[in-house]
């Protein structure tokens, strides 16, 4: 909710988001039982990211909040990706030979 001008989100939106989240949970479980090879983790994580985005935007009101909040989140995710990418860079390239 944007500070100050309390933005009231309609419960209809909450219920819609809730139903979408439940549907995605069903889909991701169903997909886990199929063998898509390399795509299994990709599908699961894409769904997880979508679900997380919905929670952030609607349940956590970021859609209606000052841009600064989105910036703070982006900043956190950026540094998280630095931690992941640079650490993995070491492990993945250990077997390479100069």
């Amino acid at each position: 909710m944007s500070a100050g001008g309390d933005h009231i989100v309609s419960p209809k939106i909450y219920v819609t988001i809730w139903l979408i989240l439940l549907a995605f949970t069903g889909i991701t479980v169903a997909a886990a039982y199929q063998n898509f090879g390399i795509f299994n983790p990709i599908i699961a994580l894409t769904i997880a990211c979508t679900k997380a985005t919905l929670v952030i935007l609607f349940f956590m009101h970021v859609k209606y909040s000052p841009k600064m909040i989105a910036l703070v989140i982006g900043c956190g995710l950026f540094f998280l990706s630095i931690l992941m990418v640079l650490t993995c860079a070491d492990y993945l390239s250990r077997a390479w030979i100069m």
Binding site: F79, I82, L83, L86, A89, D90, S93, R94, W96, M98
Partner: peptide, 22 residues
């Protein structure tokens, strides 16, 4: 400052390529 940490680990067995980047 968040992009350089492995310079403490050059002799710890990290990969040559990532050592170069760090």
């Amino acid at each position: 400052g968040f992009l350089v940490w492995a310079h403490h680990m050059f002799i710890a067995g990290i990969s040559t390529y990532s050592a170069l980047i760090f």
